[in-house]
């Protein structure tokens, strides 16, 4: 009677600790800063099988001000890894959009690493609901 979403047949899910470990590895042990990186995702997923997410980093993408990578994680999926975007000066802008699976309500996390090694983080909780019964 109610819509099911997300991965079907779930094994054990990843935890916030798994995601934290990925972030520590990516950031070389430093604590990522907040501010330059924006992760955009819906507050509530329309369909846990295909949730649009976007990242944008405030960067000139020239000279020293270049974003090299943005890693996407999800702390409640079977595995926290989602994707890693690799940018270059030819990207012109550090912005990308994709669609992802969410097994349940959880945080989506983005971490960016600049050419100089500085890292930035942003996260957003995306709710996966069974839907219906609204008003």
């Amino acid at each position: 009677a109610f819509a099911a979403t997300g991965f079907s047949a779930l094994p054990a899910l990843a935890s916030a600790e798994d995601a934290d470990k990925r972030i520590a590895d990516f950031a070389g042990g430093k604590t990522p800063e907040t501010g330059k990186l924006t992760l955009t995702a819906p507050e509530i997923a329309e369909n846990g099988n295909t949730v649009p997410i976007s990242v944008t980093v405030d960067s000139a993408m020239e000279g020293d001000d270049v974003v090299e990578e943005v890693m996407i994680l999800a702390d409640g999926n079977p595995n926290p890894d989602v994707a890693t975007f690799h940018f270059s000066e030819a990207s012109g802008a550090a912005a990308a959009t994709t669609r992802m699976r969410l097994a349940k309500t959880q945080n989506v996390i983005a971490v960016a690493r600049m050419k100089d090694g500085t890292t930035y983080v942003d996260k957003k909780e995306v709710k996966v609901t069974i839907g219906g019964c609204g008003g």
């Binding site: 819509a3 509530i44 329309e46 369909n47 609901t129 839907g131 219906g132 019964c133 609204g134 008003g135």
Partner: peptide, 9 residues
């Protein structure tokens, strides 16, 4: 905003 969740997507 939640038309595809509250109603049939």
């Amino acid at each position: 905003p939640y038309t595809p969740i509250a109603n049939p997507r």
